[in-house]
Amino acid sequence: MGTARYIARRLIFSLCLIIGVSIILFTMINAIGNPIEVLLAERPGITEEMIQAVTEYYGLHGSVTDRYFTWIWALLRLDFGTSIIYNLPVSEMLVTYGLETLKIQVPAILIALCVSVLISVLAATRQYSRVDFGVIAGAMVGHSLPGFLLGIILILVFSYTLGILPSYGAYSTRNPLWGSDMADALWHMVLPVGMLVFFNCATLTLLLRSSLVDVLRQDFITAARASGLPERRVVFGHALRNAFIPVLTYLGILFGLMLGTAPVTETVFTWPGLGALYIMAIQQLDYPLIMGATMVITVMLVTATLLTDIAYVAIDPRIRLG
């Protein structure tokens, strides 16, 4: 079974998955009710003609199947419709807000990965020591702490008390830090990224530490030591790569879902990101926005899963594609 054939098969499967999600999404949004009624409810002076016009403007006339294919066809042309609340093209909003989310999520995941590798090595190589118990306790706290609580604490300490970091937004409205937009953007990123790093780190460390503890007990680690390889190479070269295999799935999900998994962080820090926007769209039944965001997140997750599976093959020769 060649790698190319495997990838082709997985791509077809992924496509089916995306189509399935689109059908379920479309059906559910339809089941919620007529958005036009919500939109025009309790407004005085609404005539039948106006309702007709708005319905046609949003493409809500015609049968359900007709509307589904109209929607899919539009999606393929990257036309996600117009947001009801913002009256802006959804595609534009997804890009603008999505990029803001990626700006905090990508660094947060990468930093958390590096930090958790270091912490896990520190703890696993000293199993049952005070350091190890401290790391486990810290990771458990991070794992179970409600997200908003840490956010509020961070704001209280760094913004309110110390006054050194901004508590909200991605940019200063005027007077950027040191007169530089770049520095200003980074300055605003510190707290939300820090919060995400903490939570990602907690989970990654729990997973990686226990995996590493298991691997370090294996015979081939003793064999590597007995071959005279220095401890650094035994741990980082031989143990860590093996320990990483079970963590890969979680990392894939972390990347795949990153557009939608930061609503709490984005809300606490009033960050103009997709997660918070998505929640708001659901609350206000802004259906073009809900559908657009859901489809983008679905495609991201499916792609990340596919990449994870390919990464498995790269890291573990025992896994055969097929």
Partner: peptide, 17 residues
């Protein structure tokens, strides 16, 4: 001084050639 291990299935690192 070198060592030969009991279980050949577990004493070689599975992910390196």
């Amino acid at each position: 001084i070198a060592m030969i291990f009991q279980n050949p299935a577990t004493s070689l690192n599975p992910i390196y050639s």
